[in-house]
Amino acid sequence: MLAATLTAFGSPLAVQDVPGPQAGGGEVVVEVLATCVPPYAAEVFSGERRYPLEPPVVPGVGGVGRVVSIGPDATKLNVGDLVWCDSTVRARDDALTPDITLQGWSSRGEGGARLARYLHDGSFAELMRVPTENVYALPAHADPVRWSVLSVYTIPYGGLLAGGLEAGETLLVSGATGNLGSIAVAVALAMGAGRVVVPGRNREVLDLLGDRFGARVSPVELSGDEDADRAAMVAAAGRPVDVVLDLLPPQAPSSVARAAAMTVREYGRVVLMGGVGMLGGEDLALPYPWIMRNSVTVRGQWMYPRTANTGMIRLIASGVLDLAAEQITTFGLGQVNEAVTHAAAHGGPFDRTVLTPAA
């Protein structure tokens, strides 16, 4: 089969013929029809983001495909089924704190690295081997290219589930003008959020979010002054902020994340999913007395639970969450390096780059 291989950090991906995968027990082989290329993929492949990939490796974060072969433990999947392949793989020998790898992309700790060495390759290939529990049936009529955005939509959905967002509540999305943050706005409204406060410095994107989603969205243009920005966000909410979801990138200063987090009401919830401090910047410092006296819940959330895949598929299949606004540009496997370059230049809201390996 053909696959795009990262042979070394800093080198272009090499499209070459490699042995096809074989499904063992508890595994499925899928023909990859479509997979999203993250906007920061170039930073991963250059080594800038210091991801624990071990070249040579076929990268890629999940995808939509058709089942080619299944192991003996699959009871509902069939060859030919259209499926979503989730990249978040959990080790099976610890139900409480499983080691995790993002297949073909990243991992956590030594246990995650060991798992990644076994499930080494991702979706930038014609075929991919996936654990059975990471394969989810899609509606037969689903457009593989459009549905491949599950790889990005499910991430903020996991954060909203972690924050226990309920219908009618007020949410503030820190990093709302970014790739994941803008998705969080769309998903939260589909989940029934009463109001979503969207702070940011990009006026054009703030206007886009306001125009697209209407009166339930309250844009706030940030000034860079922590106290003034916090006051502006509270005023824009017009009511107590129940949940804050932080999706700021690694380059963002911790003061921006702190200003947003401290808008939350007494007994409110703050979920941290971004990258603040990951590239050596100042760490987030939330005041101990403020957390304690206001009974604020602060939790981190990396990726999402397995059930989030099913929930997201239901939201889209039911029409509650509409993917029609997605602007999608597709590339064949032979154009993978062009796709990576395109993704880096098109990382704004609802702008996706999709690779179609088996096309």
Rank of each mutant, 00 (worst) to 15 (best):
L284E: 03
D121Y: 09
Y118E: 13
L355F: 06
A344I: 00
S223R: 10
E326W: 09
G178F: 09
L82W: 11
A95F: 10
V135Y: 06
A252L: 08
N294Y: 02
R299D: 07
A95R: 14
Y40M: 01
M303H: 12
T341Y: 01
Y304R: 10
H346T: 04
A237N: 02
A34Q: 00
Q103N: 06
G224Y: 13
A257H: 07
L77S: 09
V79D: 05
R195E: 12
V197L: 15
S87P: 15
F45N: 01
T297S: 14
D121G: 05
G280E: 10
I291Q: 11
D17A: 14
R66W: 08
G168Q: 12
H342D: 07
G158V: 07
G224Q: 11
V354E: 01
M233N: 14
V205K: 14
M191Q: 15
G181I: 03
T7G: 06
W147L: 03
A186Y: 03
R299G: 09
V152G: 07
V68D: 12
M191I: 09
A162I: 04
A95Y: 08
D246Y: 13
R258H: 03
V83Y: 08
Y153P: 00
V149L: 13
T263H: 10
G181F: 08
G24C: 06
P357F: 10
A345E: 12
L286C: 06
R216L: 14
V296D: 04
V296Q: 03
S123N: 06
V135G: 06
L82T: 10
G178Q: 05
L53G: 02
R129H: 02
A125Y: 13
D17M: 04
P249V: 07
G10W: 07
V256N: 02
L180K: 00
V271A: 14
G192K: 10
S107F: 05
L138P: 07
G334C: 00
A74W: 03
P289Y: 07
A184Q: 09
W84K: 05
P21F: 09
A257G: 15
A359K: 03
M312G: 00
V64G: 10
G47R: 01
P56V: 13
G192L: 12
L53S: 02
T101Q: 12
S69G: 04
A231Y: 11
G178P: 04
L115N: 05
G194F: 03
V336G: 07
P38W: 02
V256S: 08
L208V: 12
S182D: 05
L333M: 07
V197P: 14
V130F: 01
F9E: 00
L279W: 14
V354N: 01
A41Y: 02
G268Q: 03
I100T: 14
H141R: 14
M128K: 01
P12I: 11
M303A: 15
A285Y: 06
P156F: 11
V149N: 09
E204Y: 10
G194M: 05
V58K: 09
A34G: 00
L165T: 12
A42L: 03
E226F: 05
G24M: 05
R108A: 08
L321P: 00
V340F: 11
Q16Y: 01
V15K: 03
